[in-house]
Design a protein around this nucleic acid. Structure first.
Length: 350
DNA sequence: TCTGGGGTCCTAGGACCC
DNA sequence: TCTGGGGTCCTAGGACCC
């Protein structure tokens, strides 16, 4: 009989850890990586070392605020290329242990391990231990690992173990482990759902698990309601998928200063369109739907989309669609961000 | 000190067809 | 002179993840 186990691996404070690896003199110091590394400009924290987190800095926080909280930190620009290189080496190590490796962002991955016998966990624990040693020796990066029988529980175990952790979560321990956890810690519950659950008197995952599924379906819809109910009980049947075809390709950019100038807006969207169309061709895809995105100075964000008669990878076709969308849009306030997205992608059938 | 950029998935309403 | 109901596609927005 074949049984499965899932390992979730997460490189701790990944961008910051890579920077510290490049510059060892930063080890043990607060390091904050974000945007172009200038905390007086617009941008947010992409990663903060644990020393910086002690000051209250966390990813997603505006750099200006991070600077107020931790002025002694070393602020560094995002260097995607080196993170991508490290990430590729990370995935290569994992693929030595199973073909079923699903990357999730640059710094996280799931591995499914199939074992013969009654229990897959002991074998998964052994493999996870080897992976941990190799990442520490070959990549010299800190890592946390969670092991369980499905993706949800493996990820939750990993999150609970951070930093530098290693945690096995068995089904029999789920109820006790989840009982007192705030609902926000459950995968898929963000700030909005947390607030709505709290308003319903549901504060912990243990409480959520006891709510009748019909009650959740009424409040959150059939799909999300059912998922909340299952996740609170540690149930997750989703497979580990080694490769996804992209569903959409997009680029967006925030201006250093808000602008009213329609020529700057058009010029910027054109540059983004060139970039995304090149990526589209690289993927050997064509797109049917073109969407532009505008965020105004008050942060109100709109999208305008057009589905073409025929899928295309032509820069001209896509740009003309963008222009039509721009012309049909009102600009009542100055603009903070513009973006473009291509969707309804399909492979070329030339 | 405000609030990035890359994505995925879900929902709701309207158009349109049978 | 009163207008069903199902299916599908499109658009816009929102929640969530890293």
């Amino acid at each position: 009989m074949a049984v499965r186990a899932v390992i979730h691996i997460d490189l701790d404070a990944f961008f910051a850890s890579v920077e510290i690896k490049k510059r060892p003199e930063l080890r043990g110091k607060p390091v904050i990586v974000g945007a172009d590394g200038d905390p007086t400009k617009r941008g947010v924290v992409s990663a903060a070392s644990y020393e910086a987190r002690k000051s209250g800095v966390h990813s997603g926080m505006p750099l200006k605020k991070a600077y107020k909280l931790c002025p002694s930190a070393q602020f560094l620009p995002v260097d995607f290329e080196s993170y991508e290189n490290e990430s590729e080496e990370f995935l290569e190590i994992l693929r030595d242990y199973s073909p079923l490796v699903e990357s999730f962002g640059l710094d996280e991955a799931f591995i499914e391990v199939i074992s013969t016998g009654e229990d897959a966990l002991p074998n998964a624990i052994k493999i996870a231990g080897e992976i941990r040693s190799r990442i520490k020796e070959e990549l010299r990066l800190p890592v946390s690992i969670g092991i369980s029988r499905n993706k949800l529980l493996a990820k939750m175990a990993c999150d609970l173990s951070k930093p530098n952790g290693f945690l096995v979560l068995e089904e029999k321990d789920v109820e006790k482990t989840f009982r007192e956890l705030p609902v926000r810690t459950l995968w898929g519950i963000g700030p909005k759902t947390e607030k709505r659950l709290n308003d319903l008197g549901i504060k912990t995952v243990g409480e959520l698990a006891k709510v009748p599924v019909q009650h959740l379906e009424r409040n959150f819809g059939l799909i999300i309601g059912r998922t909340l109910h299952e996740h609170a009980r540690g149930i997750d049947e989703s497979p580990v998928v080694p490769f996804y075809e992209p569903e959409s390709l997009g680029r967006e950019v925030t201006f250093e200063e808000d602008t009213n100038d329609i020529y700057i807006i058009k010029e910027t969207i054109y540059a983004l369109t060139e970039d995304v169309t090149a990526r589209l061709k690289n993927f050997d895809k064509k797109a049917k739907t073109v969407t532009i995105k505008i965020r105004f100075s008050d942060f109100r964000t709109i999208t305008r989309s057009e589905t073409l008669d025929q899928e295309t990878d032509s820069l001209n076709d896509i740009w003309v669609a963008c222009l039509r969308l721009i012309e049909a849009t009102d600009f009542p306030k100055s603009v903070r961000l513009v973006g473009i997205k291509l969707s309804h992608l399909s492979g070329r059938e030339d």
